[in-house]
């Protein structure tokens, strides 16, 4: 294992991370089982795996909302002990506060960090413009559609300047078109950042989504890291990118891991 003090500000190191839960019937369940990995600074990594495989648990432990049962997670040079503004989270559920107007939501993280009012308003307005929501800055969240609410959530974590972004199946509940629009919003924000590029950990069970977004796909099954695939395709990617032979090979591999490929041993082993 590498010495964590050598880590760059935005990288993530998993060292033998384990998480166990005690079920209602008293039985102990291992959700995450000895995961070790290193996510480089500025890398866009998708965590893929079947439902209940432990990928969301892993993400929650990076966010600090859930403690580890064993092992350690290090972000930059600091070991994760609890939630903090250096790691922004976009949840699957709508987490935009309904009782604050859109602009106040985007400012919330900066307000908690003590950014002066005028400065944080400027930053919030800039990010609202980047996600094309300037016209609803003063609206209540209930007046926005599901896709717009996700844009607000994304603008909020970017505006807060977190080094690491954790997205937990953020677009799972959205329709096909909205989902693809939001992929572009997310990638544009991530790529346009002038500062060192943010590290993104993106949980999904959508194989195509991971192929469109990721630099690297980590496959989790039964709480274990079972595969770690680098995606060698330039951006922007489109439908044609996904049909390239090398991408198809990765797709077959991923489908096999999800148990969806018949006679999958052949492709998975290649």
């Amino acid at each position: 294992m590498t010495d964590s003090s050598q880590g760059k500000p935005n990288d993530i190191t998993f060292t033998d991370v384990t998480r166990t839960f005690v079920r209602g019937d008293g039985q102990e369940v291992t959700a995450v089982d000895g995961v070790s990995a290193h996510i480089r600074e500025g890398e866009f990594v998708c965590l893929v795996g079947p439902s209940g495989c432990g990928k969301t648990t892993l993400l929650q432990m990076v966010s600090g909302l859930l403690p580890t049962s064993g092992g350690a997670i290090t972000v930059g040079a600091k070991q994760v002990t609890g939630p903090g503004p250096d790691r922004g989270v976009v949840f699957q559920k709508d987490s935009v506060f309904p009782w604050f107007r859109v602009i106040d939501n985007v400012e919330y993280g900066m307000k908690r960090r003590g950014v002066p009012a005028a400065e944080r308003r400027d930053i919030a307005n800039r990010y609202l413009e980047l996600v094309s929501l300037s016209h609803v800055a003063r609206a209540w969240p209930k007046e926005l559609s599901g896709g717009m609410l996700k844009r607000v959530a994304i603008a909020t974590v970017f505006a807060n300047g977190s080094d690491v972004l954790l997205l937990d199946e953020p677009f799972a509940a959205l329709d096909y078109v909205t989902k693809h629009q939001l992929h572009d919003v997310l990638l544009d924000l991530w790529r346009s950042t002038d500062a060192p590029r943010r590290t993104i950990l993106f949980v999904t069970h959508d194989v195509d989504e991971s192929l469109l977004l990721a630099d690297r796909i980590i496959v989790i099954r039964d709480g274990r890291l079972v595969d770690d695939i680098a995606i060698d395709a330039t951006r922007p990617r489109d439908v044609d990118t996904l049909t390239r032979p090398d991408m198809m090979t990765v797709k077959h591999k991923l489908l096999a891991h999800l148990g969806l490929e018949h006679g999958s041993r052949r492709s998975a082993a290649s």
Partner: peptide, 10 residues
Amino acid sequence: VYESSARTFG
């Protein structure tokens, strides 16, 4: 989720 979200903002 609201409390979780607030905690991630510190």
